[in-house]
């Protein structure tokens, strides 16, 4: 009888699934992957499958890290690298926001700036290193400029497209509320473009680290890049790997700082709300 009913499209019983999976909480489960990878790496090193000259074991990296920190080399290198990134990011951000606003808010600015920027954008900025060295010298200025360039383009492009995407209805509403031109920029256009600007900034910080690595491979006398180059000459794979990890952690920290900015500045946007 039951079978017959089902053939005719009868009842179906939907069984409730037990809520919540038993076992480990999600953050712990997410940590399992990296921990497992480290364990395999350590195991392979201990078993002698990988030579320490090719890839040193994780535990020896901690020792190297302690040595570098104790000798003061690490702090010195970090200081130099962070100073370069800071100067480059601030300069690139200021230029990107300044020119981006000029270009998106005035017709003359758009005609003068936008085309040039989009042409220049097609140049791979790494290719500019030799030119920057000739123009600005081999010292800090050329390195700062390279980082600033890497930051400028994503900031400019995302800001301009963000301003263009603001709902024209909101601009009209702002005008009927008696906002001046500057008031519309401050209360409507800039906050409306903020999600795009932060996306641009996140991408820009990623490029900034990349530019730092490139810049420091060329005749640096300090910084993480110098540490890597020096380690290569004395065949210290462990120092190279430690520096690579530090680059990765710095990139991660930059990403977290952008996430923090988003949660503060974009609280109005449900996607970023913390509560």
């Amino acid at each position: 009888m039951n079978t017959l009913l089902f053939r005719q499209g009868g009842m179906q019983i939907i069984v409730p699934r037990p809520q919540g999976r038993s076992g480990l909480p999600r953050p712990v489960r997410r940590l399992l992957g990296p921990v497992l990878l480290l364990a395999v790496w350590e195991g392979a090193a201990l078993a002698g499958w990988v030579s320490p000259d090719t890839l040193p074991a994780p535990h020896s990296l901690f020792t190297t890290c302690r040595e570098l920190a104790a000798g003061g080399e690490l702090a010195h290198a970090l200081e130099a690298s962070l100073a370069r990134v800071s100067i480059g990011v601030v300069t690139g951000l200021a230029c990107g926001v300044g020119l981006g606003l000029l270009s998106s808010l005035t017709a003359l600015g758009e005609d003068l700036i936008d085309g040039v920027v989009h042409m220049a954008r097609t140049l791979p900025w790494v290719g500019l290193i030799p030119l920057l060295i000739i123009w600005l010298g081999i010292e800090e200025a050329s390195k700062d400029a390279l980082i600033a360039l890497a930051v400028f383009f994503p900031v400019y492009i995302n800001l301009v497209s963000g301003v263009r995407q603001v709902d024209p209805g909101l601009i009209e509403a702002g005008r009927t509320l008696g906002l001046s031109r500057l008031g519309v920029v401050r209360h409507v256009l800039l906050p409306g473009a903020m999600p795009n600007l932060l996306t641009g900034l996140r991408y820009a910080l990623g490029s900034a680290w990349l530019a730092l690595v490139f810049a420091e491979q060329v005749n640096s006398l300090n910084g993480l890049g110098y540490l890597i180059n020096h380690a290569r000459e004395i065949y210290r794979t462990d120092i190279i790997v430690v520096c690579l990890f530090i680059y990765a952690f710095l990139g991660l920290a930059a990403d977290f700082s952008i996430r923090f900015l988003e949660s503060r500045l974009l609280a109005w946007n449900g996607a970023f709300a913390t509560s």
């Binding site: 709902d167 009209e172 702002g174 509320l177 906002l179 008031g183 409306g192 974009l266 109005w268 946007n269």
Partner: peptide, 15 residues
């Protein structure tokens, strides 16, 4: 046409 980035009261007194 409320500004999504301003709280309700800020929208009311905007301008």
């Amino acid at each position: 046409r409320l500004m999504p980035w301003k709280r309700v009261w800020e929208n009311v007194v905007l301008g």
